[in-house]
């Protein structure tokens, strides 16, 4: 019960990318994303370079392409939105394979698709090489708002507990002959959700009491505030730096 299953996004390994301190990786990925977004959409080759950079990181981290592709399903809603743009877009129309599409919409769709895909790929790489726990540690070391970090930490800790509770409630419902088949069963599910919320809320109160009992006074004590070496920072900066060089070049030619 409550048995652990590894977090799906993480892919254990012992490469340079895995070993980099989380407080270096987080800003590196964020900086990479900013540079990508700041690149003019007309400079196609720059996006190709970015993709190559990410591919290089992935190969160093030994994250296979199939792993990346499977995780990229998360991007589908954006893709759908982007595909709609050329159809519903206004302005000058162009003929593509017999379809009349908006030129502006096409540019917008390309812009969203290219930039979002690169951003998602960078995030997947970060998640694949950094344990969720380490990610939070990195956020804490970067002095991000402690309340937000604490909320994320508790979510991580109690997700399994709450899922387990949810599963027990489902088993209890089904043991008494309930099966959700159509809309008329929604009220029952809604009540279950409400009960789950109240249980979780009460657990929150008990956890808070337990924290107070051990001297909690509003902020988490920082216990392992290891500083990263200049070398780690330099290694992590390689990706955004290479991207920035590409972007600068693209600004000057566009």
């Amino acid at each position: 019960m409550g048995a652990g299953h590894r977090h799906q996004l993480y892919r254990p390994g012992n490469t340079v990318v895995h070993r980099l301190p989380p407080q270096c990786k987080l800003p590196a990925v964020a900086a990479f994303a900013v540079v990508v977004v700041a690149t003019p959409r007309e400079v196609f080759w720059a996006f190709g370079v970015y993709a190559l950079l990410l591919a290089a990181v992935a190969s160093v981290a030994r994250v296979p392409a199939s792993f990346m592709l499977r995780r990229m399903v998360i991007e589908v809603p954006f893709v759908v939105f982007a595909v709609a743009l050329p159809v519903i877009g206004l302005g000058e129309r162009v003929e593509v394979l017999g379809l009349s599409l908006s030129a502006q919409g096409l540019w917008a769709a390309w812009n969203i698709l290219a930039k979002a895909t690169l951003g998602v790929m960078a995030s997947i790489l970060l998640a694949a090489t950094t344990e969720p726990r380490m990610m939070l540690l990195g956020a804490q070391r970067l002095r991000l708002p402690s309340l937000l970090v604490q909320i994320a930490m508790f979510m991580l800790r109690y997700m399994d507990v709450i899922l387990d509770e949810m599963r027990r409630m489902r088993v209890a419902r089904e043991s008494r002959g309930f099966a959700a088949r159509d809309v008329r069963h929604l009220p029952v599910l809604a009540k279950s959700a409400g009960a789950l919320f109240i249980r979780s809320y009460e657990r929150g109160e008990r956890v808070h009491l337990a924290m107070l009992s051990r001297g909690y006074n509003g902020s988490m004590p920082i216990m392992n505030d290891a500083t990263a070496s200049a070398r780690s920072w330099a290694t992590a900066a390689l990706l955004p730096a290479a991207a920035l060089a590409t972007a600068v070049l693209s600004w000057s030619v566009s």
């Binding site: 726990r133 930490m153 008990r206 924290m211 909690y216 216990m223």
Partner: peptide
């Protein structure tokens, strides 16, 4: 309710760290 930190090490350290 009592063990709220991500690892046992951090949880046991929580009290004395406070």
């Amino acid at each position: 309710d009592q063990l709220f930190m991500p690892t046992v090490r951090e949880d046991v350290a929580f009290g004395p760290a406070n």
